[in-house]
Design a protein around this nucleic acid. Sequence first.
DNA 1: ATAAATCAAACAAACGTTTAATTGATAATA
DNA 2: TATTATCAATTAAACGTTTGTTTGATTTAT
Lengths: 209, 209
Amino acid sequence: MENNKKIWGDAFERIVEASAELFAENAFHSVGVREIANKANVNISMISYYFGGKAGILIEILNRFFDMQFSTLKNSIVETDSKEESIKRLFRNIVDMIRTHTNICLIGFSDLPNNVPEVYELKVNKTHQMMEIGNQISTRFCIDFCKDELTHILGPAMMSMLISHFTHKNFISQIYKIEFDNNYYDTYSNTLAELFLYGITGFSTEKNQ
Amino acid sequence: MENNKKIWGDAFERIVEASAELFAENAFHSVGVREIANKANVNISMISYYFGGKAGILIEILNRFFDMQFSTLKNSIVETDSKEESIKRLFRNIVDMIRTHTNICLIGFSDLPNNVPEVYELKVNKTHQMMEIGNQISTRFCIDFCKDELTHILGPAMMSMLISHFTHKNFISQIYKIEFDNNYYDTYSNTLAELFLYGITGFSTEKNQ
DNA sequence: ATAAATCAAACAAACGTTTAATTGATAATA
DNA sequence: TATTATCAATTAAACGTTTGTTTGATTTAT
């Protein structure tokens, strides 16, 4: 895939980038090929030319998302880490990933064009792989509580928890006047990591001291 | 609104029901009015007649969702509860709500037709109200850690955590062979409540004893 | 000279909405 | 009691757009 992109023109990448922005803002089916072509400054027919159709763009984006997610999770495994540092590093890395690739992540988590068979199958397969990696990480993290049968609960729960802020960000910023800077996301990542580690009980005692 | 429904025929309710199923399965913009009309056994023009357009159905569904969410949260406040029982009751009630109204909840949480101005504004307003109720509940629950400035993090995080299973359910059931019965959701609700209360640390020690 | 890249134009299909006519039941009139 | 008036409910058909895709010619670079 990396090779293809260099053989093909910039248009390929511009289409992916423009689509990612548009798909993240609104749902896949509500974005038209002409809107994409305009934003990417390419002719409409380039979409079918490069991606075989509109759905092909989404598949490209989803593949990038899952690759990114996999490597982020795997890179978060550091053998010498304590359990606490494991979780904190993991949460920090995931938040970093979402911040630097917000659009792709929002699409990967929330876009649900299940009526496109290719997309649906890809999601099933990748979810399966995610569960396996989740199991690996659980044991490597020495999270002994996390039996196989619980991975499918806690895995999605953890990821959804972390992404939730970014899906609500637009609404929240219209209500509160918060600056979403590095400091904010340090706190954000740490807060959720501590919640995940110790719950609101441990969290409250720690903060009150 | 309750009155209107009795003046109007069954068609009104059939349209809402059919749309909820379809919008939950696929995104709002990928569902056509003819598909809705077929499933509801009504003429296409009834949609504009009753709802003023396709978007009107979504607004009706979202209003029901937010009303439901508000009353579920408020009904979870029992003054005599301990902190632990407060959270467990809250989580139990939310899971019950999602189970009995899965479609409406999936739409309320994940459907994002932000390019429909009326829908977007409604979501902003209701999110605002949700945050206020979140604050009320936090203090009533004696969750002293939950300052105002953290509600906008923990509120969405908690809800997203609980809904995550239902958004992933289709994928998960293709991987694992799990029966999603009453027992499963008792465990599910309790597991996430304990995670929220004590984190994976407290959770593991409790389970290993 | 060859092949990839880009273009304007047209394609049929599906989209949401509107129209005007008709049905059905209820209320008012004679 | 029979007839008329009224209005909500429902229908088939057509409306003009917009949809994603394809075609065939043209440009660009190798």
